[in-house]
Computed example of a mutant assay.
Amino acid sequence: MFSSIKLNYTLVQKKGQNYSGLVVACHLQAKVKDQPKTYDWMAKVPLDDPTKFNWLRITQREEKELGFYQDVIPALKDFITQKGSAIQLSFCPFVYGEFNKDIPKEKVVQSSMIIMEHLSPLGFMEPVNKKSGLDLDHAKLAIKSLGEFHAASHAFYNAKYGDLENILEKDHIQTNDFIPEIIAHFNDKQTNRIYQTLTYVGVNGHKYVESYKQFAKDVVNPLKLRDQLSNPKVCEFNVLCHGDPWFNNMLFKYDGQKPIVVCLLDSSPTID
């Protein structure tokens, strides 16, 4: 028996800090089987912006993120335990999630929700001196955590399927490669930005634009080359990646001024 007593919530991100979602801190006081309980959670929902709806659906961002926390992470943890490994995956503890596929774009804010543990009461905080970037101690923790995740994912999928061939066609989180559907749109915008930037390079800026166009035509188009290098091929699965591992998606525990534990947030799972 669960009954809510009091719920307080606070928007923890300013407008524009997150491209696709809103993050809300929730403090819940409740009774569970007549016993008082306190819960501190972070809830993530899509922005209340119908113009982002098609992007969310094409990229399947909501399904992938929810599937990552709800299915992939538990499977990886079970695999690590079975193998007797000391690896500790450093992702934020998952509480609850839902995805509503058949919802109109006008109600995009209601299309999905992911609830995680609020890490601040557990002793985690943003990197000290974040504006200066991560120093060596922070970077070593982050790289070790990401490396262990990469290694675990490689071993898990290899054991699950017997080999890594055609894994993109076998596993749900890998199967829907959205890049070809949206990359042309983003490339057109980025090309125009490049042209615009080059025109600002002194009085001869227009000449740099023409040189860039000629280079892209006769030698290599930098954007197409980038796409070729970043777009995975069916038989070349290597590891699962976090997808967005910059310091805004990391929290740390400290012993004095020294970081001792990292927790990774806001994963946008990709493959490499």
Rank of each mutant, 00 (worst) to 15 (best):
M1D: 15
F2D: 04
S4W: 00
S4L: 15
K6T: 02
K15G: 03
Y19S: 14
G21W: 01
H27S: 14
T38W: 04
W41A: 06
V45G: 01
D48S: 12
I58P: 00
L66E: 01
V72D: 01
A75N: 13
I80T: 11
S85R: 06
A86G: 09
D102E: 13
V108A: 10
Q110D: 11
L119N: 05
P121W: 05
F124N: 02
S132C: 05
G133D: 02
G133K: 01
D137E: 13
K140N: 09
L141C: 05
K144I: 05
Y161L: 13
G162Y: 08
H172R: 01
H172C: 00
D177M: 11
I183H: 05
F186P: 08
N187H: 15
K189L: 14
I194G: 00
Q196L: 05
T197E: 11
L198D: 02
V201N: 14
N204H: 12
G205I: 03
V209D: 02
D218C: 07
V219K: 06
P222L: 10
L223K: 01
L229G: 00
K233N: 05
N238C: 08
V239I: 09
H242Q: 06
N248D: 12
N249T: 03
L251R: 07
K253M: 11
K258Q: 13
I260Y: 03
L265N: 04
S267R: 03
S267I: 07
S268T: 14
S268D: 08
I271G: 04
D272N: 13
